[in-house]
Design a protein around this nucleic acid. Sequence first.
DNA 1: AAACGGCGTTAAGATTGTGTTAAGATGAAA
DNA 2: TTTCATCTTAACACAATCTTAACGCCGTTT
Lengths: 232, 232
Amino acid sequence: MYKPKILVVEDDPAITNLIRTTLEAQDYQYHTAKSGSAALMDAVSYNADVIILDLGLPDMDGVDIIRKVRGWSNVPIIVVSARSEDRDKVEALDAGADDYLTKPFSIDELLARLRVALRRSRTEETDMHSSGSIYTNGALSIDYAAGCAYLDGTEVHLTPIEYKLLCVLARNTGKVLTHNYILKEVWGSALASDTPSLRVFMATLRKKIEKDPSNPQYIQTHIGVGYRMIRK
Amino acid sequence: MYKPKILVVEDDPAITNLIRTTLEAQDYQYHTAKSGSAALMDAVSYNADVIILDLGLPDMDGVDIIRKVRGWSNVPIIVVSARSEDRDKVEALDAGADDYLTKPFSIDELLARLRVALRRSRTEETDMHSSGSIYTNGALSIDYAAGCAYLDGTEVHLTPIEYKLLCVLARNTGKVLTHNYILKEVWGSALASDTPSLRVFMATLRKKIEKDPSNPQYIQTHIGVGYRMIRK
DNA sequence: AAACGGCGTTAAGATTGTGTTAAGATGAAA
DNA sequence: TTTCATCTTAACACAATCTTAACGCCGTTT
């Protein structure tokens, strides 16, 4: 029996504890993150089935977190927020959230909506072809639901950052992405790493997906600007 | 452009009218049913993308409707109900509903949640390659999004300055641009470089895009003034 | 005819940007 | 704790690009 994995992003310890004990009682696996930047790091590496996200984090705008996660994943996101204005709800939902609960919320309702999200992610995984969660470009393909990349049908093992990097490029196939844009998308606005670091990840990524890394077929360099995924 | 189809199941004429006018304004197709039995009939024949369902119908229990529909379809169901008890929400969501709104609800929130449901059911993303970010002039073309220039459909490799230079000329096709104007546009400030330098870049650019560089077809020289891109 | 000014072309440093490698640092799992 | 995978940082070689200078050509002027 598979235990679903829940990523809880919340800075209020009281609510974290409430959710934690509840999830344990329901026999779910879970992982907690207390800040937006930590959440972005864990989102890929933990490979959660559902993310429960508090919008009122201290270090980042919640809606930005949704957008960034949506850049490389279709994992269901349930927003929990103290703000009850229509404007806030619409903004979060349009950014890519799947559901929106206002505090104080009923724990039973949260669990029910969690089951809805899990039910959906399970059916999407089983019939992959009806859901548009697979990217294909030449011999390269990405299964966003599974969080895996494939070359000629065989899986290519990528580290979390390499995977995010590939997804950002794939979602913008044909467009040149500047170094800064990529850094912000992959690392998050707050702790943006530097360009030299991006280069080394680009090198390892190319070594894994390009047949001749010195003559790239997929990821083209635009000197002084950035990189670009080529449609094959 | 495909118009999503919404099936509205609601017996209160006031709310039906509100939703109806809103859906029309948003350019959605819709169909209304006033009773549970009618809804079940239409759910099959209308083949909706989303169902908006009022639980308080006179002839049938709303949760039963959800279960029956789920017997043959995974179409997203958004419940709208006057009952705000946790028990009711949990029951409806566990029966197969995707979302639950309590009356009175905000029409903006309903629309946002509708978009969430549609986003999920939509099979393919819009292709952005038909966007108008491509310049064409004779055999010459520029893809601004890709940051590339093409001659007869094959890519021409340009250095950053050459590319900027070409873009400035292309954006002002037919107009004569002075040396100073071009220098300011390409280098950022007139002080950065001088006219002799501009000549060098013009020569290399012509070598790349002109079939006979000594007899330019695209970039014409205006002695003592500047250059001009010719519309072909 | 000779001189001059504006332009195109070429080539040689100088400069910047990039790919690559490898050695610590970090953090999670056993 | 150890072990393993991953990330960060630094350094260096190499490639691409930019700048600068020199030279030849053409048309016009003196």
